[in-house]
């Protein structure tokens, strides 16, 4: 598998990143080489081998369903680039 400019464009749109025409060319080349390197995993016979996602984690941990103190909203909002009425403010989601 090698990356073409269109592939870069597609993956970048999934990742919500804009790439310029020039960047597309460079990235297509770099990502192709990284993927080619990763391609060596294809030579292994992995049938029947289970996956490891985490080490030493046998089960999902849950906490008791009890109310606890949390950040007051003004503190939680303190880093917001823009806020209004105790909420994070963003540009319009829908046009018009």
């Amino acid at each position: 598998m090698s990356f073409r400019k269109e592939d870069v464009e597609y993956v970048a749109s999934l990742a919500r990143i804009n790439v310029s025409e020039e960047e597309k060319g460079v990235l297509a080349d770099e990502l192709s080489r990284i993927l080619h390197f990763a391609g060596q995993l294809q030579e292994l016979d992995l049938s029947g081998v289970e996956t490891t996602s985490h080490i030493g984690l046998d089960q999902t941990v849950t906490r008791r369903d009890e109310a606890r103190p949390s950040l007051p909203s003004d503190v939680a909002l303190a880093n917001a680039p823009e806020q209004e009425d105790q909420q994070f403010k963003v540009p319009a989601v829908l046009e018009g």
Binding site: L44, L46, V49, E50, T51, T52, S53
Partner: peptide, 10 residues
């Protein structure tokens, strides 16, 4: 596949 290889390394 990478996660399976992780098992082999472990």
């Amino acid at each position: 596949r990478a996660q399976q290889v992780r098992t082999l390394i472990r």
